[in-house]
Structure formats: structure tokens, C-alpha cells
Design a protein around this nucleic acid. Structure first.
Lengths: 234, 234
DNA sequence: CGAGTCGTTGAGGGACGTCAAGTGTAGTGG
DNA sequence: CCACTACACTTGACGTCCCTCAACGACTCG
């Protein structure tokens, strides 16, 4: 289809990596491929139009057909708890890969919503799998990205125990600062979403936030929705 | 090597599936393979000797070379927190696959310790990867198992929020009952390990345990280290 | 304007962590 | 066989973090 068009329009595979919940690593799916193999990969990647804030990319129970790579903007992944309230799984930024958690499943189990103006690339998974059979290096990269994802989730799960809300929040900010390049951290997501992501109530988040401010760890710019990190390490 | 020997001695790939932290699914790595391809898979699988209780299968910083499948017994996977105390990642039973979290990494980031007399099969990962390139179906199964693992870890992470210790404990017991076939749940691991796995302190675990007993949800047999589940659903 | 959502702040309570003491058991060495 | 130690586990007392409920202001959208 328009795969090659996409390959021409976007930086070549620059932003094809894996999402990071905690670490800042950027493993690129196309890394180490020959020119020919790289072209094959680009051949199956399709551009998706621009999504406006609040627009949904896929929703729970949609058939899982593709992975997505964030070209620009931010995507929120969330699902619903057994009790019925929202659970934010993560925020995905430029270069992050979305959908690995659906591999091997027939349907998505999460909603994906754009938080800002977002551009995406789509990687049809069946085609990617076929391509992996012909390109061992690509298969290796995909397995690597999935392993990386398992490690990251495990880290959040294990290292996040017995950590108070303030520390969680600081770590969250530091992760965002590592993802973006700016010193100031922009927070396009709602406080409620952040609270859900961190596993605390919005009220607790609010209190922790202003406690960090009082103690001189951060500065808050309510107008621009920005945070300035003052402490280098928690 | 002794791959075919292994294939003869153990039930053919019956127990080659993925670990389950929460669900009871058993996805088999060799499922759907032709007789010939299945034989190829068996050809790279090696038996490992029997491990005695407390014996270590691999440790942090060992080179990652193989996945392991539990043939019988129980394996505990743990690591160390930034503060220096033990963090139990999970317990792996008959049929569970160990090591997926190391895929794409050079070294293991966890310790694996046998809790009971344990028999293992070893799957050299480099050979498995090569084989996947030749057998699309096997590649598909491996990707599926990794996706499954991501989903399970994500579930524990997301659905485990705002759950009190008693519920966590009940869920843990129910998971064990689904893994084993018996009505009575055997607990070969220490209470301290269970507490670490659930993310609470041993004292809290102890209290929750006896609260469940008082409320008639479980019966405790201290001599046999067994639990009898009385409530079907929490 | 009213309705709804988000965010903040206060008051109160509950679950869990912390500290401490005590028991039981296994392992060691005399 | 008996100290002696070490460790796992239990139980109590107490503190603290965070959840809950409630009220309120700011804001958006109809």
C-alpha cells in the first residue's frame, strides 16, 4: 500500500523502538538490518492519520491486528478494573511501540487514546511475523523488544513495592524527563490519570505533589502544565 | 547431544508452557507442530539433573543462555531490591517456562532456586531462535508465550492495586489450587517468601492468614504445610 | 445560567508498616 | 544429650501513610 510512502515521509525507522515504563532504553526494531531487509520492513509499515486529543486509536475488544509506533504526540493506554474503574497502564511517547501486550491474543485488552495531536505508524502484525521468518535479525529484535518489555513491567511491579507516593511521583517525573529532552517536564495527561498510573488516589497525588513543592524538590507551573525538577536524584 | 534421550524420557513436550502468575492457562510451545518439526524442537532440548531443595539453578549475573521448563517440583525466582532486601518475582510449577524475562539480555537478572526436589529441561535459547527461523509455527508459539507473559505481569500490576492483603492471599491460594490439581494447597515456600511475593510484610501476612482462618475461608494444617480452601470465590 | 468534571483541601478512619517480645524448630558443636 | 545460635513465625502495641468522604473553587460545555 502506502508503506513506502511512509518510509519516505518519516525518519527511517528512527522511532521504532519499545515503550519504556521505567528505563530510557531505545531498542530499535530495524536495527542491524541490511538495506534490503530494512526496505522490506518499511514495506509493511503504514502511516496512520493524525489523531486529535481524546481520539481513540483502538479500544478494548477490537481485533488485534497491528502494533503501532508513536511518531509524535502522546498515547495513553488504559483498561478497566474488575470493580469498573479506569486503570492507566502507561503513557507512550515518540518512538514507543504499542501493542506488544496483545501479541498472541485475538483482541486488544486495552484502550489507546491520544492525549495530544498524535501521529502513528502501523505495523500489521501478521505481516511482521511473516517477515520475521525470513529475516532472523528482525525476529531477534522483536523477541528482544518483548523481553525488554517483560523486564520493565517486572521492574515496576517489584521495585515499586513499599515506595511512598512522593517517591513514585518523583520517579515518574524523572522518567518523563529522560524520555523528553527538555529540563522542564510537560504533563499533558490529567492528574487523575497520573494517580491511576501510580496506583494511588487523586487526593493522595495532589497532597504528594504539593509536599514535593514545599520541600523544594520541584516547581509547578499551573498555566503551562509544566514541572521543573530541582533535585537530581531522589 | 542427549536431546532425543530427553525426548524419550520425559512426556513429549507436555509441560512446555508458560508460567502463570495469575491465570491458569497452559500454552504449549510445541503445540501445532508437525511430527518432524516437533522432533527438531525436542532435538535441542536437554535434560538437567535433579535439583535438591535450596539448590540454585542460575543466579543473578550468570550469562543468559537457556530457558528452562519445570518437569516436576517448584522453583522460586527472586532478585534484590535497590535497598538490598529480597524480592520474590514468582513461583514456577510443573510445566512453567522460566527465563522469558531474560530474553534480549546478556545476563539473568534473577536467582532461580529449587524449593523442592526439582527436575528441569533446558532449552538453549540461541538454538531455539534459529529453529524459530525455520519453523514459523514455533516462532508464533514463542511470541505468543511472551505476549501471554506480558499480559499476566500487567494484570498482576494493574489489578493488584487497592487490593487488601486478605484478598491477595486468597487469590494466591486460588492460583495455586488451579495450578495443582488437588483440593488441598501445599505450601512448600516460606511465609516470608509468600509475603515478599505479595508485596507485604511477614507480620501482615501472618495476621491476614489467621483472619482468613477465623472467618472460615480456609483451614490450616501446620504439620503438613497445607491449606484447605473453603470459599469457592472471594 | 446550570451541570459536569477536575483539582484541591480538610477531617476521620483503617490497613499496613514498624518495633518489640516471645515461641518453636533446625542446625552446630561440645 | 545438652547448650547455644540462628532463623522463621506469631502476637501485641503503636505510628503512619493513604483511602474515604465531604466540601469547595475553577473550568468547560451545553
Amino acid at each position: 500500500m502506502d508503506g513506502f510512502q511512509c518510509a519516505r515521509k518519516i525518519p527511517p525507522c528512527k522511532y521504532v523502538d519499545v515503550c519504556c515504563l521505567s528505563t530510557g532504553s531505545t531498542c530499535q526494531l530495524g536495527e542491524g538490518l541490511s538495506k534490503q531487509h530494512f526496505a522490506s520492513l518499511m514495506g509493511i509499515i503504514r502511516t496512520r492519520g493524525t489523531y486529535e486529543p481524546g481520539e481513540r486509536i483502538f479500544k478494548i475488544e477490537d481485533d488485534f491486528l497491528s502494533l503501532f509506533v508513536v511518531q509524535s504526540g502522546i498515547v495513553k493506554i488504559e483498561t478497566v478494573s474488575q470493580e469498573g474503574d479506569n486503570l492507566v497502564e502507561g503513557f507512550y511517547f515518540q518512538g514507543n511501540l504499542i501493542g506488544l501486550e496483545a501479541v498472541g491474543d485475538r483482541k486488544y485488552r486495552y484502550d489507546a487514546v491520544a492525549l495530544e495531536r498524535t501521529r502513528l505508524c502501523e505495523i500489521p502484525f501478521a505481516q511482521l511475523e511473516s517477515l520475521c521468518s525470513f529475516i532472523p535479525r528482525l525476529q531477534h529484535r522483536l523477541l528482544m523488544l518483548m523481553g525488554e518489555r517483560i523486564r520493565q513491567t517486572n521492574d515496576v511491579l517489584l521495585q515499586g513495592r513499599h515506595v511512598c507516593t512522593e517517591k513514585k511521583l518523583l520517579r515518574f517525573f524523572q522518567m518523563l524527563r529522560e524520555k523528553g529532552q527538555a529540563e522542564r517536564v510537560h504533563l499533558p495527561m490529567s492528574k487523575t490519570d497520573i494517580a491511576s498510573y501510580l496506583g494511588v488516589r487523586p487526593e493522595s497525588l495532589s497532597r504528594a505533589l504539593y509536599k514535593l513543592k514545599r520541600n523544594g524538590h520541584i516547581q509547578i507551573c499551573p498555566t503551562t502544565k509544566e514541572i521543573l525538577l530541582l533535585s537530581k536524584r531522589w
